[in-house]
Design a protein around this nucleic acid. Structure first.
Length: 573
RNA sequence: CGGGGUGUAGCGCAGUCUGGUAGCGCGCCUGGUUUGGGACCAGGAUGCCGUAGGUUCGAAUCCUAUCACCCCGACCA
C-alpha cells in the first residue's frame, strides 16, 4: 500500500481526550478516530490490525475444532425475556423499537441467540459436541466508556459457545479452549497470564481470565512467584494463618480524638496497622452486618457476598453506620454491636487487637474474639494482596500486577440451556439439557493491549504477527528519479515476495517520514536515499531493537523475507 | 448515577474575570528555495466561538436551559 493513496492522518500532537498510550498512539498514528463516546472508526491501518488479530483467532479456533458462524447484532427482546436477562442485564443493554413497535436489543453477548439456534436444530446426542464461534461487533452501553479501545461501547469480540452431552466433555472442551487461548495470545506477541476469576453473574464453577500485563490495566491480579497460581484479586484465595493464643489483658478504652482513618489511628497510637481491625458496616441484601478485616487489608465484597449467600453487598452510608454503631463513621468496633459480626480469618488469628469503641473519638485496646464479642461467622473476607503466602503451593508469595482482560473462558453448565430448554435426546433415551461453555476474546481490546505493552517515547512497536504491515519502505528523495526507481522496484519485489509493505512515496522530507515511521511502528523500516543508493545499499532498521543494518539492494528482499517469516507466526507455545 | 472539568479553524490552545467587528502554533493550499530525524521565505484559505433562549445599542465574553465530551468514583461476561 502506498501512503500517497491511502488515509493515514498522523498527528504531531495528542488529542486532548486521550490519556493512555494505546489511545494516544492509535489516534496520532492515524489508526483510529472517535465518532461518539466509546464508538470509533477504524482507519486503514487500524482495520488491518483488527484483521490480523481476527485471522490469528480464526486459525486457532478452527484448528481447535470450532466452527465459525455469524449471528445477528439485532436481537428480538423475546429471547432476552425468556432467559430473564431482559430484566437483569440492566442499563448496559441497548434496547430499541422497530417501526412496528417491536422491542429489540443490540447484542452485548449472544448466549440467547446461540441457544435458540441450537435448541431448534440439535435434537440428538449424535450431533454433539459442538463449538460455534463468531467474530462480531458487540454493543454494551457502558456507564463510562474510557481509554479508547480499552473500554469502548461498541467493540469487536470473538465469542464461542460449546454444547456437550455431559460435564466431563464440557470440561475437556474448556481445557481445549484454555490451551487455544494461550496459543492465540502468544501468537499475538502478548505477555499474558491466565488467572482464576470471579464467575460473576454468568455463574458456573470454572472461569479463567486472560490478562495482558500492563501498568494501565484496569484489573488487579496477584500471581505466585513459585507456582503457576494466579488470580484476580476479587477471586484470589488467601491462606489461613495460624491462630495465636487469645490475649489475656483486660479490654481498655483509649481516647483517639478525631482519629478516624486507619492511618490517623496508627499514627496517633503509634501502632502498626496490623494490630488494628477495620469494622465495616455493610448492607447485605438490605440488612446491616459488620465485617472485620485487619487494618492493613481491604474487604472483598465478592467474597462476603458468596460466603453469606447474598445477592447484594454494599457499604453502608454514614447514617446507617450511625444507627448501627451509635457513633460517627470511623469509630465502629465489634464490641457491643447488635448486628451479626463476620470475622476474617486473619482477625480471628490475632491474640487481641485495637478497634473502634462505637463512641466518638475513642477506640478500645485488647479486644479478644470470643471474650469481648462473638463472631457470627469466620471466613475469608479480605482482598488478596501482594506479599500474601500462596494458598496453592504453600511456598511462594504473591506479587501484584495490573492486567487488561483480553479473554475469558467460562464453564456454564446448564445455566442457559435448562431455562431455555436447549435439550437433546441422549443415548439412554432421556431428554437432557446441553452442558455449555462460553469463551470470549476482545479482539479490538487486544490491539490496545498490544500497544500498551509495546511502545516507546516515539510511538508504537508492533510485534510482527499483528502489525498492520511488516515493512515500512521510505523513499528519502521523492524527486530523485534514481531513488524513486529503486524504491518502486523494491516495493514491487517485496509485494511479489509476499512481504506486507507500506510504501511512503510522499514528497516529504526525510525527517517527517522517519517520525511518522516511528509513530506508526511497523517492525522493519527500509530506507533508500541518495547516499545509500550510491553505495548500492538499503538501510534496514528494526523498530524494536533500533538495530540498523546496511543491506545490499540485491539481497534486501531475501534478507527481509527470511527475517519476517520467522517472526510471522509469533511465539506460539 | 455522584463529584470535578472542558466545548473557540482539521489538531493543540489563548481570548471569557473587566461585553466593542475572532487570535496564536501546527496542519492545509499556491509559488520559490530546500532535502538523512517533524526545513525556510512569501502569499492564501478555513469559524453560526457546542446548541437554544434571554439581558444589552452591541455577547465567544453576562444570565437561563440544554447537548456533547473528558477525568475520578460507583457500575461491569
Amino acid at each position: 500500500m502506498k501512503v500517497s493513496s491511502t488515509l493515514i492522518p498522523t498527528l504531531k500532537e495528542a488529542p486532548a481526550e486521550a490519556e493512555i498510550p494505546s489511545h494516544i498512539l492509535m489516534v496520532r498514528g492515524g489508526y483510529l478516530r472517535k465518532v461518539a463516546a466509546g464508538v470509533y472508526s477504524f482507519l486503514p491501518l487500524g482495520w488491518r490490525v483488527v484483521q490480523k488479530i481476527s485471522r490469528i483467532v480464526r486459525e486457532e479456533m478452527n484448528r481447535a475444532g470450532a466452527s465459525e458462524v455469524f449471528l445477528p447484532a439485532v436481537i428480538p427482546a423475546e429471547l432476552w425475556k425468556e432467559s430473564g436477562r431482559w430484566d437483569h442485564y440492566g442499563a448496559q443493554l441497548l434496547r430499541f423499537k422497530d417501526r412496528k413497535h417491536g422491542e429489540f436489543v443490540i447484542g452485548p453477548t449472544h448466549e440467547e441467540v446461540i441457544v435458540d439456534l441450537v435448541r431448534g436444530d440439535v435434537k440428538s446426542y449424535r450431533q454433539l459436541p459442538l463449538n460455534l464461534y463468531q467474530i462480531q461487533t458487540k454493543f454494551r452501553d457502558e456507564l463510562r466508556p474510557r481509554a479508547g479501545l480499552m473500554r469502548g461501547r461498541e467493540f469487536i469480540m470473538k465469542d464461542a459457545y460449546s454444547f456437550h452431552t455431559n460435564e466431563e466433555d464440557a470440561k475437556r472442551e474448556y481445557k481445549n479452549m484454555f490451551d487455544t487461548y494461550c496459543r492465540i495470545f502468544a501468537r499475538c506477541g502478548l505477555a499474558f497470564r491466565a488467572v482464576e476469576a470471579d464467575t460473576g453473574a454468568i455463574g458456573g464453577s470454572l472461569s479463567h481470565e486472560f490478562q495482558v500485563l500492563a501498568e494501565t490495566g484496569e484489573d488487579a491480579i496477584v500471581a505466585c512467584d513459585n507456582c503457576d497460581y494466579a488470580a484476580n484479586v476479587e477471586e484470589a484465595n488467601v491462606r489461613k494463618v495460624d491462630a495465636a493464643a487469645p490475649g489475656t489483658e483486660a479490654l481498655s478504652e483509649v481516647s483517639t480524638p478525631r482519629a478516624r482513618t486507619i492511618e490517623e489511628v496508627t499514627k496517633f497510637l503509634n501502632v502498626d496497622a496490623k494490630q488494628l481491625v477495620k469494622t465495616l458496616i455493610c448492607l447485605v441484601d438490605g440488612k446491616p452486618v459488620a465485617v472485620l478485616v485487619r487494618g492493613d487489608r481491604e474487604m472483598n465484597e465478592i467474597k462476603v457476598k458468596r460466603a453469606l449467600g447474598a445477592q447484594e453487598v454494599v457499604l453502608a452510608n454514614d447514617r446507617t453506620v450511625d444507627e448501627v454503631t451509635h457513633a460517627p463513621v470511623g469509630f465502629a468496633g465489634p464490641v457491643g454491636l447488635q448486628v451479626p459480626v463476620h470475622v476474617d480469618h486473619e482477625v480471628a488469628a490475632l491474640a487481641s487487637f485495637i478497634a473502634g469503641a462505637n463512641k466518638a473519638d475513642a477506640h478500645v485496646k485488647n479486644v479478644v474474639l470470643g471474650r469481648d464479642f462473638k463472631a457470627a461467622s469466620i471466613g475469608d473476607f479480605r482482598q488478596a494482596a501482594a506479599g500474601d503466602h500462596c494458598p496453592r503451593c504453600d511456598k511462594g508469595t504473591f506479587k501484584g500486577f495490573r492486567g487488561i482482560e483480553v479473554g475469558h473462558v467460562f464453564f456454564l453448565g446448564t445455566k442457559y440451556s435448562a431455562p431455555m430448554k436447549c435439550n437433546f435426546l441422549d443415548a439412554d433415551g432421556r431428554e437432557k439439557p446441553a452442558v455449555m461453555g462460553c469463551y470470549g476474546i476482545g479482539v479490538t481490546r487486544i490491539a490496545a493491549a498490544a500497544i500498551e505493552q509495546n511502545h516507546d517515547a516515539d510511538g508504537i512497536v508492533w510485534p510482527v504477527p499483528i502489525a498492520p504491515f511488516e515493512v515500512h519502505l521510505l523513499s528519502l528523495a521523492a524527486n530523485d528519479p534514481a531513488v524513486v526507481d529503486a524504491c518502486n522496484d523494491l516495493y514491487k519485489q517485496l509485494n511479489d515476495a509476499g512481504v506486507e509493505v507500506l510504501y511512503d512515496d510522499r514528497d516529504e522530507r526525510p525527517g517527517s517520514k522517519f517520525k511518522d515511521s516511528d509513530l506508526i511502528g511497523l517492525p522493519y523500516r527500509m530506507a533508500i536515499g541518495k547516499k545509500g543508493l550510491a553505495e548500492g545499499i538499503v538501510e534496514v532498521k528494526a523498530r524494536k531493537s533500533a538495530e540498523v543494518l546496511k543491506v545490499p539492494l540485491a539481497e534486501a528482499v531475501a534478507w527481509i523475507k527470511s527475517r519476517v517469516e520467522t517472526e510471522r507466526l509469533g511465539s506460539a507455545k
